[in-house]
Design a protein around this nucleic acid. Structure first.
Lengths: 127, 127
DNA sequence: CTGAATCCGCGGGGATACTG
DNA sequence: CAGTATCCCCGCGGATTCAG
């Protein structure tokens, strides 16, 4: 999926092609900074909108709502509205969301592990 | 790192804050569609520019060069120039790059695994 | 073939105001 | 407090051109 070498370009199988385009679409949704940061911020906890806004450093109101909608649409987060006043909305990772979280952790771990190496590489390159 | 709850906001420790901002920078570099797709396209192989352009479906000339520069700068890909005519340039993942590839595979695997679930969630949401 | 540079349009994304 | 809508601008990113 996603990359060419893994796809069988059988022109007669429209289903595979459709599934692949869907996979690429999901990949594009998920492989972006904010979506991943939100996912990690949620973790095992359930947070309200304003808390999330504080946890995900630097995210704007707009980006947060946009990405939350997207994550909700893809079934990665569960959105629970309490019809109180003032309103309260809780966000929680669903099972797929928690599963994705594992991969985010992997990226974070990777970043941590190679931080020094990357810093060095940059210094070397910037000359 | 990256998210607030993992950071200790000790105002006296400027080093930690710097490392954190660096981590967020690297995360932003790496957590983007094209960088990840290029990384996976490379895999264990070494490809030239034009081959990469074919492998990474839909990427433009400009985005490819830009991301390759970025990956090279961070020491994730090795760039080997053959001073022939016409010129030939080979790209290969370095060890950090191959390590990152593992996490990309994880995301791809995740996509694959939850594709059906996500498709369903979308259908439910789009009503 | 690789890649830097230029032009340019479109959309991402911030700020703000307004509803419930 | 949560969310939508509007305005608006900057920068991403595509197309094209030029160089080596």
């Amino acid at each position: 999926m996603v990359t060419k070498q893994l796809r069988e370009d059988l022109p007669e199988d429209a289903d595979l092609r459709r599934a692949d385009s869907l996979a690429r679409e999901i990949f594009s949704d998920v492989a972006n900074k904010w979506a991943l940061l939100i996912t990690e911020a949620l973790g095992e906890r359930t947070l309200r909108f304003s808390e999330l806004r504080n946890e995900v450093e630097g995210i704007s109101h707009k980006m947060l709502t946009q990405n939350l909608r997207m994550l909700e649409r893809n079934g990665l987060v569960d959105r629970k509205v309490y019809p109180t006043v003032p309103p309260r909305v809780d966000y929680t990772l669903t099972e797929p969301g928690r599963a994705l979280r594992g991969t985010v952790d992997a990226i974070c771990g990777w970043t941590h592990q190679y931080l020094g190496s990357i810093e060095d590489a940059r210094r070397r390159f910037d000359t």
